[in-house]
Amino acid sequence: MSASLPLADAECTDLSDIVDTERYPLHDPDHPRMRELVASCRAHLAGNGSAVLHGFLRPAALAQARAEGVALAGKTYFSSRKVNAYFTADDPSLPEADPRRVFMDRTSGFVTRDVIPADAIIHRIYVAQAMKRFVATCLGEERVWEYADPYAGLVQNVMPPGTEQPWHYDTNEFIVSMMTQQPDAGGDFEYCPNIRSPQGENYGGVGAVVRGETREPINVITLQPGDLQLFKGRFSLHRVTQVKGAIDRHTAIFAYSQKPGVIGRLERTRQLYGRVSEMHLEAEQRLVRADNLVD
């Protein structure tokens, strides 16, 4: 009988077979290297809202993750529509220059968690206790939780040549992502650190960016396959530029929350994934927002 493949396991404290634990010893929180790593991530997150861990995966695991991503791409839900940075409907009562009235092409696609196998590299990473412990420590949280959302907790973003993600915010305060396949050209990650805050939307500054009037607040990151990124996307406007060449851009997105039971917004779920579940319908009825920011 052949050995069974490792499956996603929320009790897993050691990902040494897939993560380069010589560089990133997630299994040993007290390791000197780990303390240095956490301090560095915290400093970068505090300074500009983003921390990148290069070469997070071992080469063989990265090759496997890439192959799995290519296979999963056939299950992608693609949509093409005009959206604003807040995923809200047009409001003709607002001035035309208001960023809520600036609509951009969104042409990327997603593979949702419910169709990602439990033995996939990205699924094993997402649920592992070692990973959640590391993310929480970097963010200064006592603990983080997986999304309860059946679709959005773990997704693979698939961007074929010609597609792009326009300027937007995340509904969660932070997101963790890992590129598994890099395109020939384009597909850069651009963001404006802390362009808004819980105290205000800064529509003037945001409007200048989404209308293309300034690039002054924009940071650019060209990620490589196997890079892990921690990013505070609730307050930092961000986008992925148009993918060019002949190769898709594949990125795993690991969504964690500061509280258990998080379910994505109904309309945003419908737009991104083309369907909703009973959990989304029920959650929308109970929704109470923790801040007054527009999604």
Results as ranks from 00 to 15, higher is better:
V38S: 00
A39L: 08
S40Y: 05
C41K: 01
R42S: 12
A43M: 01
A46D: 14
G47N: 12
N48V: 03
N48E: 08
S50V: 15
L53K: 10
P59A: 10
P59I: 01
L62E: 03
L62V: 05
Q64I: 02
Q64S: 11
G69K: 13
V70K: 06
V70G: 01
G74W: 08
K75P: 00
T76F: 04
Y77D: 06
S80A: 05
R81L: 14
R81T: 12
A85Y: 10
Y86N: 03
T88S: 11
D90P: 02
P92A: 12
L94A: 02
P95I: 06
P95F: 09
P95N: 02
P95L: 07
E96M: 02
E96R: 12
E96W: 00
V102C: 13
F103C: 04
F103K: 08
R106H: 15
S108I: 10
G109Y: 09
G109D: 13
F110C: 12
R113S: 11
D114P: 04
V115Y: 12
I116Y: 01
P117Q: 11
A118Y: 01
D119G: 00
I122V: 15
H123M: 13
I125F: 02
V127A: 13
M131S: 11
K132T: 08
V135R: 09
V135W: 06
T137I: 01
C138T: 03
L139T: 03
G140K: 05
G140C: 03
V144L: 07
E146Y: 00
A152Y: 03
V155C: 09
V155E: 02
V155M: 05
